[in-house]
């Protein structure tokens, strides 16, 4: 494992911790898109089908379990926790999952490395992850006052994707046969979706003003 991959995993983990911190300490999920969180739960559920059949490393298994457990518990908190669910911006979070899920499923059935159930599900999870942030970005744009934790959460997610790209470049240069077009292209698309957010996030941080995205 290289430093980019490890940093990427750690920023991913930190993004989840920041979100759980917001939910547990402030008892609020204001500004967080339930649609995006449900898409992430779907991403991990379909990607980690091999969790008990193909052993990679202890690190790998533990991280998979963490991402599965946290993504489903976040969805549970936002939907069912009697205090947290009240802060959910239901009227603003209007993105339709199906518009993202259906094209991803069709694409995974057509463009994949091997036509097996596990492989198609794995590819589907990559496509869904690429676009899962969209409902969150739409919600951010509609939110007048984006709180610090929400801003940091999205920033950490974007940083995690950017670091994964560096990891792929590094692995391509150092490992033989490391060519994974589907992973790379969907990962690149995913990272590009954050470009606009990054621009405004860094500007607000530099000028020390509250983050606000233009409508």
């Amino acid at each position: 494992m290289n430093i980019f991959r490890l940093s990427g995993d750690m920023t991913h983990l930190m993004s989840v911790i920041v979100l759980l911190l917001k939910i547990h300490t402030i008892k609020s999920c204001a500004g967080i898109s339930l649609k995006t969180q449900e898409l992430y739960a779907l991403v991990f559920a379909t990607r980690y089908l091999d969790i008990f059949t193909d052993f990679v490393s202890v690190y790998n298994t533990i991280m998979k379990l963490i991402f599965l457990a946290t993504s489903f518990s976040i969805v549970w908190y936002m939907r069912h926790h009697k205090i947290v669910r009240r802060s959910y911006d239901k009227e603003q979070d209007t993105f339709r999952h199906l518009f993202l899920i259906l094209p991803c499923l069709i694409l995974a059935l057509v463009v994949n490395e091997k036509f097996t159930f596990k492989e198609v599900m794995w590819t589907f999870s990559l496509y869904v992850e690429a676009v899962a942030i969209l409902p969150q970005l739409v919600l951010l744009q509609r939110t007048k006052n984006i709180d610090n934790l929400t801003g940091q959460y999205v920033f950490l997610l974007g940083a995690y994707r950017a670091l994964y790209i560096l990891n792929w470049i590094y692995r391509y240069l150092t490992e033989k046969h490391f060519v994974h077009w589907i992973t790379w292209i969907s990962g690149l698309v995913q990272t590009l979706l954050y470009a606009d957010f990054f621009y405004y996030y860094i500007n607000s941080w530099k000028n020390n003003v509250r983050l606000q995205l233009p409508a």
């Binding site: 091999d50 990679v56 998979k64 994964y164 994974h180």
Partner: peptide, 10 residues
Amino acid sequence: EEQETSKDEL
């Protein structure tokens, strides 16, 4: 030799 996808990543 068969090329496996990068399942060692998260």
